[in-house]
Amino acid sequence: MLGINDPWIWGVYLLSFLSALLCVAYGLVNWNKGGKTETDEILEEVVWEEGEVEMEEKELGL
């Protein structure tokens, strides 16, 4: 195959292309995933804590 007789060699020739293709597919599928930064996490915590305070204030009728 491909002018190469040893299947261990033409196999790895194709396998190298396939592994690069795997990287491309993974990158495309997950292109927009995992965008949360540490700053976003801190902001989320602050918003969540503010919400907690508001809830408590409502419960206390303030």
Partner: peptide, 14 residues
């Protein structure tokens, strides 16, 4: 963030 790493996989593999 992890998103940058996801995108980097594509470029790095090729």
């Amino acid at each position: 963030s992890s998103r940058e790493l996801n995108r980097a996989v594509l470029i790095g593999g090729v």
